[in-house]
Amino acid sequence: MIRTGRTGRGYALRGAAAVAVVALAAVTAGCKEQPAAGASAAPSAPASGDSPTDDAKPGGGTPSPSATATPTATPKEPAGASPEPSASRTTSAPTPTADPQGTVLMASGAQGEQVRELQARLRQIGHFDRSPTGYYGTVTVAAVQSFQGKRGLSRTGRTDTVTWRKLLGMTRKPTATELNPPTTRPVAKPDKRCLEGRVLCISKNSRTLSWVIDGKVVSSMDVRFGSQYTPTREGTFSVYWKSRHHVSSIYHTAMPYAMFFSGGQAVHYSSDFAARGYDGASHGCVNVRDEGKIAALFAQVRTGDKVVVYK
């Protein structure tokens, strides 16, 4: 009887162990569903009657009432005591100090009429060496830094209220021509050879062309020249041929409003110059960017008029 009981108990224990192994194998063989992107990884709420915070009793079943912890009363804080800081309490960020030079009005990347006025005023007192563009780029940043440094201000390169007030006090309101000059770069002082008669006065240094009649500049425009391998010739020439709808017989490119002055070199409109600016170059001709201006010039220039190309 005793042996039989022990054997029965042994079989019962081995049977229970086998059931546990099978249950464990069923769990590990199953697929766990992955949470969707952005879904919380917190476990789902337990079924009614389950207590996820309690450990299961050996053999299953519901824990006895004695296993439930009795809450302890929280002692009262002594009168006048300072509360302990909470670890989760958020501390406010320090208040930023005000910029001593005031509010920033313009900075790198800005564009518009106020930027154009800034550039024109800086140019009046020698801090901006080109015509206003209306765009606040690296050249304007450097000009503002130069102005700020000479006035004892922080060289931020940004135009703040203090910098702007100082600039206004040292300059006058720009004229319409100063705000919107005829050329990107300042027009060069005409060469002495340009002061008599009717002359196309072309400066390589300033990259400008001025139409001069008896020493008076009638109009000016941006121009570009040939590359180092096909340079534009310098010297005194004259217009020997005009061709309104000319097409190059060598390069097969359009040369509208062409005014030839030296061999195959001419002053003419360039759509490439209008699109790419000074990133490109001609094959020796004097390219004009503004089609309206070259059209007006073409109508005024006569065969035999002087052309002066100089540095």
Rank of each mutant, 00 (worst) to 15 (best):
I2T: 09
R6P: 00
R14Y: 09
A16N: 10
V22H: 01
T28Q: 14
G30I: 01
E33L: 10
Q34M: 04
P35R: 14
P35A: 12
A36G: 14
A37D: 14
P43I: 11
P46N: 08
A47S: 15
D50E: 15
K57S: 06
P58R: 04
P58Q: 00
G60P: 05
T62P: 06
P63D: 11
S64C: 01
A67C: 03
T68W: 03
A69L: 13
T70Q: 15
P71E: 07
A73N: 00
S88P: 00
T90L: 08
P94N: 08
P96H: 02
T97W: 00
P100F: 03
Q101N: 15
T103L: 03
M106R: 15
S108H: 12
S108L: 14
G109T: 06
E113L: 08
L118R: 04
L118I: 08
A120P: 05
R121E: 09
R121P: 05
L122G: 08
G126A: 05
S131Y: 06
G137D: 14
V139P: 02
V139N: 12
A142C: 03
A143M: 05
Q148D: 05
Q148A: 09
G149F: 08
S154T: 12
T156R: 03
R158L: 13
R158H: 09
V162H: 08
K166W: 13
M170L: 15
M170K: 10
M170E: 15
T171V: 11
T171L: 09
T175D: 06
T175E: 12
A176M: 00
E178G: 10
R185A: 12
R185I: 04
K189F: 02
K189C: 06
K192H: 11
E196C: 00
G197S: 10
G197R: 14
V199T: 07
V199P: 03
C201Y: 02
S206F: 08
L209M: 14
V212L: 07
D214H: 13
G215P: 13
S220G: 05
D222Q: 04
V223L: 02
T232W: 02
R233F: 09
E234C: 10
T236N: 07
Y240W: 13
K242Y: 06
H246G: 10
Y251H: 15
Y251N: 11
A254G: 12
P256Y: 11
Q265F: 07
A266W: 01
Y269K: 06
S270I: 02
S271G: 13
S271R: 06
A275D: 13
A281F: 10
H283L: 04
C285P: 01
C285L: 06
V286R: 02
V288S: 05
E291S: 07
K293W: 01
I294H: 03
A295F: 00
A296F: 02
A296N: 11
L297C: 02
V307I: 14
V308Y: 04
V309W: 05
Y310H: 12
K311I: 03
